[in-house]
Amino acid sequence: MNILNNLIIKDYCKLMIDIKSFIHNKFIKSLQSYKNILDSTCLIVAVSGGQDSMCLIKLLKDYKKLYKWNIKIINFNHNWRQDSYLNSKAINNISLRWGFQFIYFTKYIQNETAARKWRYNKLVQLAKDLDINYILTAHTATDKIETSIYNFIRGSGFEGITSLNYYQKINTKINIIRPLVYTTRDETIWFCRKFYMPIWSDITNYSYNIKRNRIRQELIPYISKYFNNKFNKNFTHFLNIINKEVEYLQNKSNYFYNISKHKKHTAINRILIGKLPLVLQRRIIRIFIYKKTKNKLNLMKTDYIIDKYTATFHKEYYRTEIDRNWFLVKRLNWIYLVNKIN
């Protein structure tokens, strides 16, 4: 009976795709790679009212009945514009019309980076409180390119350059999914026009005080015009190559991290780690510290720790503060992570 039901669902799903658009096809094929999302009964979706997020909730609405999703629309208002409240009210009206639950957060935060971090923390906390496993955002392939360039300019490593991926695991339960990351902004605006979706134009997207806007409005068009008119396509291909290599290095790092762990204490074997290539040493140190403290070390701090803690010619005992609660201790063959409270 279950097999029959699955076949009926697949046929119906294919029919829906054929009737609608190639973006429906992209969307559902990407979700089918992560079957747990399709089986999930409840989803959190961040919606701003712009073309990308309106495209996403239209797609979710079209498949809502098929997969029996309970969708919670989350909207954030930083009061940056005079029409911010009206923007949120419009999203609330669409949510009510389509049978979505609307959840609204407001807080004035002037700095864009701080505001992004606040929104992220709110989404994760809400997922924990409601016991929901999946958070969906409307980041597109265009956003991925912009974020990669922005992080590259800031001096990020490969992980930072390839950070905006389709799937991001937050912890053992919560995951962020970006179903439109294979779709461009040109395609989402086409989609919204085709289905007469209301779009709320955000004037802050055109403010050059925000560095990402300069990348979007000036840098990428300049490169595309004067250096490579297929820049977006080629750069996306480049990011996909790097992403596969980062995945491989991360898997290797996790393997060596697990075999270097102390059986009883929060510690790793510095002699074993010191014999590995530097690219793996860096990742193992970051994994070790992040798993316990949730601190993400920058490259300079990571290399300092490697130099002081894995080299055999340095003194046998060494101590370094990680933050107000944690410090590292080198003793004999081990690097210990110690809580100051204890």
Rank of each mutant, 00 (worst) to 15 (best):
Y317V: 15
Y150R: 08
H314E: 12
Y104I: 05
Y317C: 11
Q110I: 09
S88G: 10
V45E: 04
L126N: 04
G157T: 03
I37E: 04
Y317N: 14
Q32C: 07
K252M: 12
Y166G: 00
N87I: 09
S224L: 03
L123V: 02
K64L: 08
I259S: 08
I189E: 08
Y85T: 14
I322M: 09
H265D: 14
I94W: 02
H262N: 14
D186Y: 14
N70T: 10
L123G: 02
Y120G: 01
R216T: 06
E159T: 08
W190V: 01
D323N: 15
Y317M: 12
K117Q: 05
F327E: 11
D39L: 15
I145T: 11
I161R: 07
N5A: 11
N36F: 09
K291N: 15
K275M: 11
I8V: 15
Y226K: 12
I241N: 09
E245I: 08
G157V: 02
A267I: 01
N209M: 09
S156G: 05
N325T: 12
K122V: 05
E316V: 13
T137Q: 03
T293H: 10
M16T: 13
D323I: 07
N36K: 14
C13L: 15
I3N: 12
R324P: 00
A90I: 10
N209E: 13
I28E: 00
D52R: 02
